[in-house]
Nucleic acid binder design. Sequence first.
DNA 1: TGCAGGGTCT
Length: 459
Amino acid sequence: MVACLSYTPDPLPRTNPFPCSRLQFGSQEALLSLNKCTNFKHIKQIYAKIIRHGLSHDQLLIRKLLRLCSSYGKMDFATLVFHQIQGPLTFTWNLMIRYYTINGCSQQALLLFNLMLSQGFPPDKFTFPFVIKACGAASTIDLGKVVHGLAIKTGFIGDMFVLNTLMDLYFKCRKVDCGCKVFEKMRVRSVVSWTTKISGLVSCGELDVARGVFEQMPTKNVVSWTALINGYVRNQPEEAFELFWRMNIDNVRPNEFTLVSLLKACTEMESLNLGRWVHDFAHKNGFKLGVFLGTALIDMYSKCGSLEDARRVFDKMQLKSLATWNSMITSLGVHGCGEEAISLFVEMERANVQPDAITFVGLLCACVQTNNLEEGQRLFKYMGEHYGITPIPEHLTCMIELYNRAGMLDEVCILENAMPSEPNDYILSALLRASKVYGLVNMEKFLYRHSGKVDSSAV
DNA sequence: TGCAGGGTCT
């Protein structure tokens, strides 16, 4: 968390180290160069040039640079650049807070806000939504309440963006009453205010209340329709489609978000025909096969039983995200195509896509499906040694299952070292299966050591 | 510079 802020870069020159340079490189040229940047190395070169030509005081230029660093996920370099600015404007502080949150560094965002205040830089109406979002991302409702108080004290609480973000924070932290209170106190409400309340209630499990709020909404747009549709996907997928038809009658055009929700509903219903209909609808209505829609289609086809269609979508996708690769690898694995799953993983590595823990869940599941202990052991080792990925319960469940099937219960016990303090139900089930089959006394002891939930009669 | 809805996991 403190990594970015405690990062101590080599000192950079604050003045032009090449005052006699004859090169013509002003702010305009620097901006043009930044606009043409295609890789991070290029950004660093331009920054060096900015320093050399004494342009580092130009905050417009620096903000552009920070935005590029953020888009490349290079927040360590952005931190270095930011701390070279003498007297950053509130605008620039705001952007840094926002970029930290976007890049998953919400703690750094909050630390930077604290630094901003302690150095006497005044927050403005833009600062608060960014900071409140950081509180939400860091799940710190207590700090969120402090920021709420500060927004009141500084007079920015009347801003609709601040109120909408606050409401969202309270709902995301399951403080339904506080979220509703913010909504009630709003003098003016936008479609975003209403939609924030609807989606907030839907995550808090208050679907009926959310429906009531939706019906009261003066103006509905595609986001509000999709928020409600999404609420029905898991437990009442048919109702999600009913709402979709109603939305069409109301002449609200669905977007990619809507179709992804519908595909999830198809998956819940295990309806390949309906899934094909959504795919066809997307095609006929000119939707591009983007990463979200494409990945949702792969998942739907796979879970509805058509691995061939899933693979066809995967091959057709021009742009693939990590989730896309993971979805296809998992699909191959659960359909018993273990070798193909591993081949696709090799292809993924060749494409320079960095795998994550979920990739290895898919791969290890593929090994379980095909009873391939040797490959499972190799991948489990490779995951840690090559990628530094720490095993999560899903990996351990697969490994226990593999060792269990091979009758290697001593190996199961070795996994104890990697076991979380409170193994989840999947792990306990896998261990129980192992214990039940082989009736090992040691296993019973092991289970008792890790959970008070297990009844000895079940073993 | 801003606020709402989406994909991969035993």
